[in-house]
Design a protein around this nucleic acid. Structure first.
Lengths: 194, 194
DNA sequence: CGAAAATTTGACATGACTCAACTGGAGTGG
DNA sequence: CCACTCCAGTTGAGTCATGTCAAATTTTCG
């Protein structure tokens, strides 16, 4: 009954790199399936992130609390997105992040040790993740630029346009914490621009 | 008379990966040396970034202008740093960035086509750049987090501590545009916290 | 030395936050 | 299926952080 999730995952792999069935099966062996309830946490601060995590169903986010206990959402994802504290995963330093299911979710994860073995057994996987990390960098730089130079409301409009599928499924306070403003202020902006 | 710069560069390579002399020489063949006057531009908006660029001497930065012609500095670097619009280099889309010498500078650059050949001839170079891109990602995420959740003055203090060598050599308006505030406001903060 | 660039200063405007109160809807247990 | 609670979202008043603009001053470098 977990077939479908593995199916989604192998389709996702094959979208980026070419793999024969053997290789795909080898990858699937390395995958662990985790099911999460709404709001359940998969990673909490104080430990390194030891897995690469892929959302097969539902939605999840990566966020942290600053010294005033304000939430800041670094990443929001739905089906077919990867969600992780890459910083912690790559450096193996303790994470400051929470990874949390927004809706009920199914996550496929590959542990670091499995991944290292995979790099040897299926070298294309190394390419796959290099491409993923590059995209992550590109996306992060784009967001950095927007945060530095674009009005909040413009960013909000761009968000609901680009993440149309997501916006419906995510509470507004999470969107606010992703945009970098308080929920009150986002609410105020929406009214003002009606 | 360019020996010294190549020397600096090979030392830099050997700090991250192991290479025999042959391999190093092969890499050096792919390198082009560019000398820049103060404020001279090496990349301007509207063209893709076609080189990976290493600062052998002097200092440089990567910045862009927003729609109000405000400068935003994404990266500041001195000797032994890489400076580039990685976004454009990786996607080969037109860059929105300027790369500019702050002090008179010597840049070593490797073109994309040379780099691709290098990946084949000296596979360790692929690892080298993967590590560099990972570090770039990690640094960018750290900065993103700080921008979202830390006071400007705290960020300024952290900047002058971590970039002590740089801060002396870079005009304050560039530091301001790196921190994401106006020069006037940074000046005000410095006075206030005397 | 002199011109141009960078920095400082101050008055004023505005974007964004805080806090507290209120509203409405979703989930839960009896 | 109702009543209750709780959480998300909204509203408004007051405040603080940061921006704008223009002018005065200092520094830099050609």
């Amino acid at each position: 009954m977990n077939e479908q999730y593995l199916e989604i995952f192998s389709a996702h792999l094959r979208q980026t790199i070419q793999l024969d069935d053997n290789a795909v099966n080898r990858v699937l062996e390395a995958v662990e399936i985790v099911k999460l309830k709404r709001k359940e946490l998969l990673l909490t601060p104080g430990q390194p992130s030891k897995h690469m995590r892929f959302i097969a169903e539902g939605s999840a986010r990566c966020y942290y609390l600053d010294e005033n206990s304000q939430e800041h959402t670094l990443q929001i994802g739905i089906e077919n997105w990867w969600v992780n504290d890459l910083y912690s995963f790559l450096t193996q330093k303790d994470s400051q992040m929470y990874i949390q299911a927004i809706e009920p979710a199914v996550i496929l994860q590959i542990s670091q040790s499995n991944l290292e073995q995979l790099y040897i057994d299926v070298p294309e996987i190394s390419t796959f993740f290099r491409i993923k990390i590059q995209s992550a960098y590109v996306a992060l730089q784009e967001r950095m630029i927007e945060n530095l130079s674009t009005e909040v409301y413009t960013r909000y409009q761009k968000f609901i346009k680009e993440y149309r599928d997501i916006e419906q499924r995510v509470p507004q306070y999470i969107v606010a914490s992703y945009l970098g403003v308080t929920p009150e202020f986002l609410s105020y902006l929406k009214k003002k621009h009606l």
